[in-house]
Design a protein around this nucleic acid. Sequence first.
DNA 1: GAAGATTGATGGGTCAATCTTG
DNA 2: CAAGATTGACCCATCAATCTTC
Lengths: 191, 191
Amino acid sequence: MSATIEPAEPVTGRVIAAATRRAVVPADERRSAPRAGDWQIAAWRSFLRAHAHVMRRLEQDLQANHKVSLATYDVLVQLVEAPEHRLRMSELADAVLLSRSGLTRLVDRMQREGLVERQPDPYDARGLFTVLTAAGLAALKDAAVVHLAGVDELVLSRLTEGELRGMYELMSKIDPLVPEAQLPPDACGIE
Amino acid sequence: MSATIEPAEPVTGRVIAAATRRAVVPADERRSAPRAGDWQIAAWRSFLRAHAHVMRRLEQDLQANHKVSLATYDVLVQLVEAPEHRLRMSELADAVLLSRSGLTRLVDRMQREGLVERQPDPYDARGLFTVLTAAGLAALKDAAVVHLAGVDELVLSRLTEGELRGMYELMSKIDPLVPEAQLPPDACGIE
DNA sequence: GAAGATTGATGGGTCAATCTTG
DNA sequence: CAAGATTGACCCATCAATCTTC
């Protein structure tokens, strides 16, 4: 679409700077955040910035090349990875971290575009499956090339193998619910 | 507000898994993302998950305790850090990574709540300053305590000093436009 | 005409209430 | 009644067009 770099998400200084903090938080309350010193906050801010930076670019790349949003892309990925290319609405909602209603509407749109279909669950008439269509798979194939290239360019290629491992370690400490599996101990075969 | 942990942002597997990739991307195109192997992607996903996890909690904390959104909080922080507690609309928009129109509406709301005011610029009648009110400063003081405690609990306290430095290094490599200043070389005084 | 800011139309999300089926 | 899914009302962001002032 447009080549302009337009902000997509407000993130910058969502954290109060330590300077601000000293000015604003009474000294006796500072114990509540004992580690939030100047440069710790700088580290945290760098995290927010990096995230915003990368996500903005990825979203743009996808939209520009395939008119697919990241949310849509995420759904396509979840479906293609699922057995029989289908998932219950609720499961899908959990997988892409969307509310039920949010997912309903997203699937509505995707169905309109022919990327997915809804299938009743024969064993439980309350439930519905969202199933990937041929068009959906094709769209994913298209988008994946662009998207992966983006992730590679913006993130992976900028870090060494060891740094990537380091990042994984750090993130695991921040998010206790570590993703699916542990990082394979020595799956270093870069391709 | 509600204590429920509800998803706020779709992020999970926004990146195609390497398994998917092999199934979906023709072998001769894989060169375009040569480093996007299985565990590199795992590292990238951990980044997305950690971000979603933390932001969700921070947003909830703020909303629950002070009915302030992260975007609003961000504006308050930018203003309190600015000279004379005021900033031009455009500057503010850039600072919080919002579009001009997005900021106009956000400031509208904040003004309605009495957190900020608009001041004409005497030197350029086209421009407006957004200026922090006493109520805005008070709200910030309140919110900052909660927010900083959250950042501390969810991120800072989980990482050692060295790990925090490491994170800063990694993020700087991902986002070339490193924040304001470099990390002070030896500002290790944790309080 | 260009820059600062706002407005109108629209996309995409949330919660709370609802309908249907187990 | 509980669970799965949807709908209605609303919030918050974007872009494109507009108005005002330089």
